[in-house]
Amino acid sequence: MSQNAADRSFEGRLDRNALAALVASDIPHGAYVNLGIGQPTLVSNYLAPGSGVTLHTENGMLGMGPEAHGDEVDLDLINAGKIPVTELPGASYFHHADSFAMMRGGHLDICVLGAYQVSATGDLANWHTGTPGAIPAVGGAMDLAIGARDTFVMMNLLTRDGQSKLVPECTYPLTGLGCVSRVYTDLAVFLIEPDGAVVRESFGIGFEQLQELVPVLLRQ
């Protein structure tokens, strides 16, 4: 199935911003959260000032504010994607070993990551396609995936050629085993539970049609 065909088929699907708003609305008041590079970064646009959510960036900061512009730009103050950001009142700085101890030690409530594939048991593949000649880079993905108390994934459900990215077993190199608890996609939100994947809600597609697309036994 081409992407265009997929677009036409699912008119109620969520766009990236609507999906980011949905993730933001599911983050509890007062949570400590790490947002991965790329699509997950959009979530910060939908965290209300009164949300009480504190953002962590693995290069050594809690209380990260929005992207810096103009005179705010300070090359000593960047996020994990090396984009200049700002600090909020109550922010703190710490070195890299402390930052990852914070993560690995289970002190962060939620991290939101992108993915190439997620398995029915919550295995995550998001760092390397395994393509010959590709230069591998992992960054903090493996630490984040297994460190935060909850790992949420944000991705399109289908690849460009219509293949489900929620799979029985990942075929790309793994980032972490059994670490994903929730998968937010343009077509549905999946809860990864000990006995399998549960569809929490879907967008522009019925359960039967979703089950036809996803080669993993789904429950409602």
């Binding site: 890299h96 070993a97 930052s99 990852f100 993560m103 591998p136 992992v138 903090g140 630490d143």
Partner: peptide, 9 residues
């Protein structure tokens, strides 16, 4: 190639 947290630790 080393995961970033393992590198720091």
């Amino acid at each position: 190639l080393v995961p970033q947290g393992n590198l720091a630790e």
